[in-house]
Design a protein around this nucleic acid. Structure first.
Lengths: 146, 146
DNA sequence: TTCCTTGCAAACGATTTGCATTGGA
DNA sequence: TCCAATGCAAATCGTTTGCAAGGAA
């Protein structure tokens, strides 16, 4: 999805919910649309050049999460990282570095993703569970920390 | 695994690593072996009847985590809950019900688990990432809520 | 106007740490 | 004996909140 399309999608979603798409919120969505993985409030604060105070950032993140635009990922030391929700970013999985805590997104090649989906269906059958969504999270060492 | 076997396994592991299995650490492992889900430091503090001050609890948890006896489970509000490590509890995945929020553990049949492991290895190769651990989390509707 | 958002500073709560004391090998 | 573990209190750090000022509808 192009960035301007993305902003339009978000705008629409927020309008539906009577939530204002203010300058601060635009900045957050825009920054997250340009990065590879989830960012914490502090990381976001750096990325956007201290343009928005932390407290306002936290409030924007909370609003965007409640509106279903962002998804939180809980990290160590009580740090929460956010990324665009799946309906905006597309389906992907996470590589979490146990060394530095960085989270990278991977979009699997179709043959991999179909095997994951197949496993998920099979597990659902075994466990009498109706799968709606899945996430394969892999912990390990990223290229930088290996 | 019986509880006394479990304590013996932990004792052995700690001995190998020259880590003392003190009264406080025994209390923590024992409490966690008796509960169904992961517990936070505060919850543990309650469960063991304030027998150990919070700061000591945190230190015990840190030591046991570094020794590979406990695994942290990151929750909202910066709360970390701990459970016995996988080699003590068995490898499993999570089925999260989007209806009632319940989290069920599933232990996959060997042929499923090996396919998951194979995918994880393949993904690591693609992404230049060294996988150490993985977790497949499936969201959907549990049997009760379907 | 009226309600929502923002910025600042202070408050909060989970976790960590400095230091003196205790305890186990 | 002697280093690691403990208890207490104070410090840290991510996050939240009260309040007054700014903005959009």
């Amino acid at each position: 999805m192009t960035k301007s399309n993305l902003m339009r999608e978000v705008e629409e979603r927020l309008a539906d919910r009577r939530v204002r798409f203010t300058k601060g919120r635009r900045t957050v969505v825009s920054a997250l649309s340009l990065t590879d993985g989830p960012l914490s409030a502090a990381e976001l604060h750096l990325v956007i050049g201290n343009a928005i105070p932390l407290s306002s950032l936290y409030r924007s993140l909370a609003v965007l999460e409640r509106a279903g635009v962002l998804e939180p990922h809980l990290g160590k030391k009580g740090v929460t990282r956010y990324e665009l929700a799946e309906w905006l970013r597309g389906h992907h999985h996470h590589l979490v570095c146990i060394e530095c805590g960085a989270v990278d997104d991977v979009e699997l090649p179709e043959n991999y993703e179909s095997r994951v989906a197949e496993l998920v269906r099979g597990i659902g059958d075994i466990a009498r569970f109706t799968p709606m969504n899945h996430a394969l999270e892999i912990e390990g060492r990223c290229a930088r920390c290996a």
